[in-house]
Design a protein around this nucleic acid. Structure first.
Length: 147
DNA sequence: ATTCTCACA
DNA sequence: TGTGAGGA
Protein backbone atom coordinates (compact mmCIF):
# COMPACT_ATOMS: atom_id res chain seq x y z
CA UNK A 1 0.00 0.00 0.00
CA UNK A 2 1.38 3.35 -0.99
CA UNK A 3 0.34 6.45 0.80
CA UNK A 4 -2.08 8.67 -1.08
CA UNK A 5 -1.36 12.30 -1.75
CA UNK A 6 -4.09 13.29 0.65
CA UNK A 7 -2.38 11.35 3.40
CA UNK A 8 0.85 13.17 2.73
CA UNK A 9 -0.85 16.52 2.55
CA UNK A 10 -2.83 16.58 5.76
CA UNK A 11 -1.88 19.53 7.97
CA UNK A 12 -1.20 17.72 11.20
CA UNK A 13 2.04 18.88 12.81
CA UNK A 14 2.47 22.10 14.72
CA UNK A 15 5.80 23.80 14.26
CA UNK A 16 7.10 22.46 17.54
CA UNK A 17 6.03 18.91 16.70
CA UNK A 18 7.66 19.17 13.29
CA UNK A 19 10.83 20.56 14.80
CA UNK A 20 11.08 17.62 17.19
CA UNK A 21 10.51 15.11 14.42
CA UNK A 22 13.25 16.73 12.37
CA UNK A 23 15.59 17.50 15.23
CA UNK A 24 15.89 21.13 14.25
CA UNK A 25 14.72 24.36 15.84
CA UNK A 26 11.42 26.08 15.13
CA UNK A 27 13.50 29.06 14.15
CA UNK A 28 15.19 27.09 11.40
CA UNK A 29 11.83 25.88 10.19
CA UNK A 30 10.60 29.45 9.84
CA UNK A 31 13.81 30.37 8.05
CA UNK A 32 13.33 27.66 5.42
CA UNK A 33 9.93 29.13 4.80
CA UNK A 34 11.27 32.67 4.45
CA UNK A 35 13.80 31.35 1.98
CA UNK A 36 11.01 29.81 -0.08
CA UNK A 37 12.05 26.21 0.44
CA UNK A 38 8.76 25.17 2.02
CA UNK A 39 5.17 26.38 2.05
CA UNK A 40 3.46 25.19 5.22
CA UNK A 41 -0.26 25.51 5.87
CA UNK A 42 -1.33 28.66 7.70
CA UNK A 43 -4.30 28.96 9.99
CA UNK A 44 -6.26 32.20 10.26
CA UNK A 45 -4.11 32.96 13.28
CA UNK A 46 -1.05 32.65 11.07
CA UNK A 47 -0.05 29.54 12.92
CA UNK A 48 1.86 27.07 10.77
CA UNK A 49 0.91 23.44 10.25
CA UNK A 50 3.03 20.84 8.52
CA UNK A 51 2.07 17.66 6.67
CA UNK A 52 3.99 14.41 6.38
CA UNK A 53 4.96 15.52 2.89
CA UNK A 54 6.47 18.63 4.41
CA UNK A 55 8.47 16.50 6.81
CA UNK A 56 9.76 14.39 3.92
CA UNK A 57 10.67 17.48 1.97
CA UNK A 58 12.54 19.02 4.88
CA UNK A 59 14.39 15.77 5.51
CA UNK A 60 15.51 16.00 1.91
CA UNK A 61 16.66 19.56 2.45
CA UNK A 62 18.55 18.60 5.60
CA UNK A 63 20.37 15.83 3.74
CA UNK A 64 21.40 18.21 1.01
CA UNK A 65 22.74 20.66 3.55
CA UNK A 66 24.46 18.15 5.82
CA UNK A 67 25.70 15.46 3.45
CA UNK A 68 25.94 17.12 0.08
CA UNK A 69 27.02 20.44 1.55
CA UNK A 70 24.57 22.30 -0.65
CA UNK A 71 23.68 25.77 0.56
CA UNK A 72 20.18 27.07 0.90
CA UNK A 73 20.77 29.20 -2.17
CA UNK A 74 21.91 26.10 -4.00
CA UNK A 75 18.74 24.28 -3.05
CA UNK A 76 16.67 27.21 -4.21
CA UNK A 77 18.48 27.10 -7.53
CA UNK A 78 17.82 23.39 -7.91
CA UNK A 79 14.13 23.91 -7.22
CA UNK A 80 14.10 26.78 -9.70
CA UNK A 81 14.94 24.29 -12.43
CA UNK A 82 11.75 22.31 -11.97
CA UNK A 83 9.89 22.93 -15.27
CA UNK A 84 6.52 23.71 -13.73
CA UNK A 85 5.28 25.18 -17.02
CA UNK A 86 5.71 21.76 -18.55
CA UNK A 87 4.23 19.84 -15.65
CA UNK A 88 1.05 21.89 -15.48
CA UNK A 89 1.08 22.42 -19.25
CA UNK A 90 1.05 26.19 -19.47
CA UNK A 91 0.12 27.61 -22.85
CA UNK A 92 2.59 29.55 -24.93
CA UNK A 93 0.80 32.74 -24.05
CA UNK A 94 0.95 31.96 -20.36
CA UNK A 95 4.65 31.27 -20.58
CA UNK A 96 5.27 34.58 -22.28
CA UNK A 97 3.90 36.56 -19.40
CA UNK A 98 5.17 34.32 -16.65
CA UNK A 99 7.97 35.77 -14.56
CA UNK A 100 9.08 32.36 -13.50
CA UNK A 101 9.25 30.87 -16.96
CA UNK A 102 11.21 33.86 -18.20
CA UNK A 103 14.23 33.34 -16.05
CA UNK A 104 14.19 32.86 -12.30
CA UNK A 105 16.57 31.33 -9.83
CA UNK A 106 13.88 30.83 -7.22
CA UNK A 107 11.38 27.98 -6.69
CA UNK A 108 8.20 28.50 -8.72
CA UNK A 109 6.11 28.31 -5.57
CA UNK A 110 7.60 31.57 -4.35
CA UNK A 111 5.50 33.23 -7.03
CA UNK A 112 1.83 34.03 -7.34
CA UNK A 113 1.00 32.87 -10.82
CA UNK A 114 -2.31 34.64 -11.01
CA UNK A 115 -2.15 35.27 -14.71
CA UNK A 116 -1.78 31.71 -15.85
CA UNK A 117 -3.07 28.20 -15.34
CA UNK A 118 -2.28 28.34 -11.66
CA UNK A 119 -4.99 30.92 -11.15
CA UNK A 120 -5.73 31.70 -7.56
CA UNK A 121 -5.05 28.25 -6.17
CA UNK A 122 -2.24 28.03 -3.67
CA UNK A 123 1.02 26.32 -4.46
CA UNK A 124 0.17 23.71 -1.85
CA UNK A 125 -2.61 22.55 -4.14
CA UNK A 126 -0.25 22.22 -7.08
CA UNK A 127 1.35 18.95 -8.12
CA UNK A 128 4.58 20.78 -8.79
CA UNK A 129 4.90 21.45 -5.09
CA UNK A 130 3.39 18.27 -3.68
CA UNK A 131 4.96 15.89 -6.16
CA UNK A 132 8.49 16.96 -5.40
CA UNK A 133 8.44 16.69 -1.64
CA UNK A 134 10.72 13.70 -1.97
CA UNK A 135 14.37 13.88 -3.01
CA UNK A 136 14.04 11.00 -5.43
CA UNK A 137 11.30 12.72 -7.38
CA UNK A 138 13.44 15.78 -7.87
CA UNK A 139 16.36 13.61 -8.88
CA UNK A 140 14.30 11.62 -11.36
CA UNK A 141 12.89 14.78 -12.84
CA UNK A 142 16.31 16.24 -13.44
CA UNK A 143 17.51 12.98 -14.94
CA UNK A 144 14.56 12.92 -17.32
CA UNK A 145 15.37 16.43 -18.44
CA UNK A 146 19.03 15.65 -19.00
CA UNK A 147 18.46 12.72 -21.28
C1' DA B 1 1.87 26.79 27.33
C1' DT B 2 2.54 27.96 22.29
C1' DT B 3 3.22 30.50 18.42
C1' DC B 4 4.02 34.87 15.75
C1' DT B 5 6.95 38.85 14.02
C1' DC B 6 10.84 41.60 14.19
C1' DA B 7 15.34 42.92 15.54
C1' DC B 8 20.27 42.22 16.78
C1' DA B 9 25.23 42.61 21.61
C1' DT C 1 21.54 30.11 13.30
C1' DG C 2 20.40 31.75 18.23
C1' DT C 3 18.04 34.67 21.54
C1' DG C 4 14.87 37.90 23.39
C1' DA C 5 11.17 41.40 23.38
C1' DG C 6 6.17 42.21 22.99
C1' DG C 7 1.70 40.77 21.72
C1' DA C 8 -2.09 37.19 20.91
Amino acid sequence: MTKTDSTLDKPIYTISAAAKLLNISVHTLRMYEREGLIVPFKKESNQRLYSQGDIDRINCIRNEINESKISINGIKTIYSMIPCWDIVKCTKKEREKCGFFNGSNLPCWTYNHNQNICGTKTCRDCIVYSQYSECNNVKELIKSIAR
